[in-house]
Write a protein that binds this DNA or RNA. Structure first.
Length: 319
DNA sequence: ATCCAGGCTCCTG
DNA sequence: CAGGAGCATGGA
């Protein structure tokens, strides 16, 4: 109740959305020095047809942003000469748009990390060796925004992924930003300040549980007023950042590790209680039941330092 | 119908 | 400190 509940999207649909032809001014190549399997990344981004904060257009990924009071629509595609091509599809490009978008994409796709040490380390691991051979170049697709990462983790707790996507979409469509381009709507995940001002009853009406409603609004408030930020967490030792996350109501070990993995980019983060991870291991090893936490930790010993990537590659087998 | 989903908090013995 | 109820809904 700290802020009035905004009842309109953050960006009016008609704001600043003049289409103009693609020119060098709104297209830039992003060199990629690491191994990148674009097709595999696309497959992961396409894992749910209920995803609403990015979309696929043939081999291109489209993602909208709301900054400086305006809505932007960007497109990512593989470049003929290697790397990626970033295009700003709408609006007049500010001078620094390319640098800002490139920074976001490098973060989102984890493009500054050399995976050779990981591949080398697990090349004889009975679980991971076949996976890194098959999916080599798959990047850990993350959530650069702390609030988005935390929200998605909290939403996904306990319920099946399909219902989680429904809840997320309702949240985005009610509180997020919308960018309209060539007759299509592109959505932006709401920022923390907006959800901090959301009304409890509105989230309940969207079928969020009472607990998740309270968790989300409280977490949003902490982020909105600066008590919690990605920057402050990244300035800490990983163990201290994890402890800080665990102080949040609604954040247990799984959520803390998930956020460490997908937002803070700690390669050692290991959401060992994850049911998807357990099911992936059960299938690959043809176990009669889900492995216990102890068994998982034993299996994960050879992945030391790369548990986050190992988990991500194991999740990939579930697609 | 019953159990389980990308868990967590809170209450009980 | 271990164990269990409750949460919201949907799919198997």
């Amino acid at each position: 109740m700290k802020k009035p509940a905004p009842s309109a999207p953050q960006v009016p649909p008609e704001a600043g959305l003049t289409h103009h032809p693609e020119t060098l001014a709104n297209r830039r190549r992003l060199p990629v020095a690491v191994e990148l399997n674009y097709r595999e990344c696309l497959l992961f981004l396409n894992r749910s047809d209920m995803e609403c904060t990015h979309s696929l257009n043939d081999d291109a990924v489209r993602k909208a942003f709301c900054t400086d009071g305006r809505g932007w629509l960007s497109e990512i595609r593989p470049a003929a000469q290697g790397g990626l091509t970033l295009t700003l599809l709408n609006g007049d490009a500010p001078a620094d748009w390319a640098a800002r978008l490139a920074a976001y994409v490098r973060d989102w796709w984890d493009l500054d990390r050399d995976l050779q040490p990981f591949y080398l380390q697990v090349q004889h691991d009975r679980l991971l060796a076949p996976l890194v051979a098959r999916y080599r170049g798959l990047r850990l697709l993350g959530y650069p925004q702390l609030f988005e990462a935390l929200s998605w983790a909290v939403i996904g707790q306990q319920i099946n992924l399909s219902f989680a996507y429904q809840l997320r979409r309702r949240l985005v469509h009610r509180y997020g930003g919308k960018v309209t381009f060539e007759g299509h709507s592109y959505w932006v995940f709401p920022d923390a300040a907006t959800i901090a001002g959301a009304r409890r009853q509105d989230l309940l009406a969207m079928q969020f549980s009472r607990q998740k409603t309270d968790y989300l609004i409280a977490i949003a408030a902490e982020i909105a007023d600066g008590r919690l930020s990605r920057e402050s967490l990244q300035a800490m030792e990983p163990s201290a950042a994890r402890e800080r996350l665990l102080q949040l109501r609604g954040v247990g070990p799984w959520t803390a590790d998930y956020v460490m993995m997908k937002c803070l980019r700690n390669p050692s983060a290991f959401p060992v209680g994850d049911v998807g991870l357990q099911n992936a291991v059960r299938q690959l090893l043809r176990l009669p039941g889900k492995p216990t936490e102890e068994e998982l930790r034993e299996l994960a010993r050879p992945w030391s330092g790369w548990e986050a990537y190992a988990t991500f590659y194991l999740w990939r087998t579930l697609i």
